[in-house]
């Protein structure tokens, strides 16, 4: 049970407490709405992760199979040498989008798949198997970037959800019950005081009548 606040049993205090309950209730309603919206966002991102993750993993495994093939046909040393010669720059536009004040990453990737001519390794020493493996890794990279965006969003939303839930719980289970308890106490005390007054007046009236 929530502990009652220490309050003076006056009408002024009662009015103040009623205002505070109103404000707390408003805060509670809005934070609850925010929590609902966060749940919608979280499940949406989760759905996207569930779609993106198997695709990325599948593409990675395809790429690794192609790489093994490349090691076998072109040779391990030659493949490693070609990988060292490859250009490593990738144009990625990382910005933020906001979901109720939570900054989540918004990543826009340009074309990840490159032409064999612009990858950077020499063509006369390599084979088309290497081109194929590179292409498959580039496809996997694009899917991994998308997956990273979704996963980071999910973490950010989950963190905000946790914070909001803590506040909603504090309002629901601590502050609002305490305020309501205090209001109840003041009302009971005021009623009691009124009854006391009434009986006192009756008693005085009776005493005055006795004297007369």
């Amino acid at each position: 049970m929530a502990m009652a606040l220490a309050v003076a049993p006056t009408r002024m205090e009662l009015l103040k407490l009623r205002q505070r309950v109103g404000l707390a209730q408003k805060g509670y309603d809005l934070l609850k709405e925010k929590m609902d919206a966060l749940v919608i966002e979280f499940f949406e991102v989760l759905k996207r992760i569930q779609e993106a993750r198997p695709k990325a993993l599948e593409q990675l495994s395809v790429a690794h199979r192609a790489l093994s093939m490349c090691f076998a046909i072109v040779g391990t040393l030659e493949t490693k040498q070609a990988s060292k010669e490859t250009k490593r720059e990738l144009q990625v536009d990382v910005s933020t989008r906001h979901i109720m004040g939570i900054a989540v990453p918004a990543v826009e990737v340009g074309e990840v798949e490159r032409n064999a001519l612009i990858r950077g390794y020499g063509l006369h020493m390599t084979s088309s198997v290497l081109d194929e493996a590179s292409k498959k890794f580039e496809r996997a990279l694009k899917l991994l970037i998308e997956l990273a965006e979704f996963e980071e969003s999910a973490f950010a939303i989950a963190r905000e959800f946790e914070k909001t839930k803590r506040r909603v719980n504090a309002l629901e289970y601590i502050l609002i019950p305490r305020l309501k308890e205090a209001i109840k106490f003041i009302m009971m005390r005021l009623d009691e005081m009124e009854r006391e007054n009434f009986s006192r007046l009756k008693r005085i009236k009776a005493m005055l009548e006795e004297r007369e």
């Binding site: 505070r20 408003k26 925010k34 979901i99 109720m100 004040g101 502050l175």
Partner: peptide, 16 residues
């Protein structure tokens, strides 16, 4: 005070 925290929280809801 709790009231100030709630007011602050409400004022931050639409900052995005």
């Amino acid at each position: 005070s709790s009231d100030r925290i709630i007011k602050l929280e409400l004022s931050r809801l639409n900052l995005h």
